[in-house]
Amino acid sequence: MQLQISHTTHYRYDQPVDYSLQKVRLRPKASELQDIIDWSLIIENGKLETSYTDHYGNHTDLISIEKGAQDLTITASGTVHTSDTSGILGKIYGRAPLWHFLQPTPLTTPGERIKSLARIVSNGENALNDLHTLSAAILKTAPYQIGQTQADTNAEEALQIGSGVCQDHANIFASAARQAGFPARYVSGYLMMNDRVDQDASHAWAEVHLDDLGWVGFDISNGIAPDEKYVRIATGRDAHDAAPISGMRMGSSDESMIVSLQVQQ
């Protein structure tokens, strides 16, 4: 399937900004699941300082704001050809070893709630089924709801709050899968929803490593396996590692952000 994506993030500041940096992971990498036909990153009122591939293989750009600007716009857009493999990415590995994806991070350190959920998953032949059951259980315990959790809410807290967005679901899932003994990671990317062109936000899901299948994707928020409507952008151990944009700025100005995202065939 050929997907056209246009993703604009617009920052506004109430005072001129002297200096600010954004670490941006907004360039999809080619894989078994996706070919990148064309892709570009356009920056307004800012500048691309440098680019590199990070330790998870993510294309990463460092962007600075133009001195004195009150706006910064970052637009990622392009065309990606995707295939449906029932969520299976397979045995594709970067330098980060599997054991690394068994280690918790501050956002995915399991507490009692996650440990209890993780018991759903046995380490036997039914692991794949169990993981689907885990995914459903997470959605049931913490139904999709915007505004109850924040960017820095950790997995255990989201479960406690009892609701969350895709980011929380993927964090919880990764945490619980690790607890059950499976290497797991967080994926950020795009999803084309059938009924609309304008999407609210970029999406997130998770991948678990099974010895026989390799990496397998789970979209917890939608209760399905990622298919050709999904575009993978970045991976990591949690939402922080794979965040599309994270930034810092000097000074006391207040920041507001508007995101517009179109994904269509």
Binding site: L21, K23, E49, T50, T53, L62, S246, G247, M248
Partner: peptide, 24 residues
């Protein structure tokens, strides 16, 4: 590097890890 490690650090240089990985 507060952009990569402890975000509350006042002692570091935001973005230095990115510049480092870029080989600069």
């Amino acid at each position: 590097d507060p952009l990569t490690f402890n975000p509350n650090s006042m002692l570091g240089v935001p973005g230095i890890m990115d510049v480092y990985r870029a080989g600069n």
